[in-house]
Computed example of a mutant assay.
Amino acid sequence: MINSDEFSKRLQKVIDFYGESASSFSEKIGVQRSSISHILSGRNKPSLDFVMKVLSTFPEVELYWLLNGKGNFPAESKKVNSPDLFSNPSEPISKLSNPQETPSNQIPNQILNTDESKQIERIVIFYTDGSFKNFENAK
């Protein structure tokens, strides 16, 4: 059985980690603001639908950690060691990619050479099997 008090603490940790308010968090996962409030206060227990919405919106949250407090948050296993795509945006992608990849799998240089006043913060690539790769700008 899930411990509602401990679950609400972990949910609050997720909300704080992403710098969200309860209102903005509820909008992102697609639930009513009152649902978040009731879960955080311990009045209601989270539904399976609620938990699944959190997991699908925030892939760094592990199911076992969210429900039982065991494991890590943010999830270490989902972080991908990847080349630093942000260190030199004018460097061709082909130098950063596996040379055996076909050009159709490479990100065109036009995407990286955008307005110089803007910097890319993060690129997430989602695969059809549900996995993803996360490339973050090391600031």
Rank of each mutant, 00 (worst) to 15 (best):
V54M: 02
S117Y: 13
A22E: 05
S82W: 05
Q32W: 13
T57Y: 11
F86Y: 02
S131V: 08
I39G: 01
P108Q: 07
K118E: 12
L63W: 15
D5Y: 14
K53N: 08
S47I: 09
E136V: 08
P46A: 08
G71E: 04
P83I: 09
E101H: 13
G42Q: 08
V54Y: 12
I125E: 06
D49S: 13
S56G: 12
F17S: 00
I111H: 00
S47V: 09
S97I: 03
F50R: 06
K118D: 12
R33S: 02
S26K: 02
G30N: 06
K79W: 01
L40P: 04
S117T: 14
I36K: 00
A75R: 01
P108M: 05
V14Y: 05
Q12D: 10
H38M: 11
I39M: 04
P99Q: 03
F17W: 09
G30R: 06
S82M: 09
K53R: 15
L63G: 12
E76S: 09
E121S: 07
S41P: 07
K78M: 10
K118G: 09
F135S: 05
I29E: 03
S34W: 11
D5R: 14
S90G: 08
N109M: 07
Q100G: 07
S21N: 08
I123R: 02
S24T: 15
K45A: 04
G130H: 12
S87G: 12
S94L: 07
F126R: 15
S117R: 15
F126A: 15
K95T: 10
F135R: 01
E76P: 01
F7H: 02
D84P: 01
D129N: 15
F17Y: 14
G71Q: 07
E62Y: 02
S35H: 13
E116D: 12
E60H: 02
V14H: 04
L96K: 01
P103Q: 04
R10K: 06
S104G: 11
Q106L: 10
A22G: 13
G71W: 00
R10S: 05
S8N: 01
R43K: 14
Q119Y: 10
I120S: 02
I36G: 05
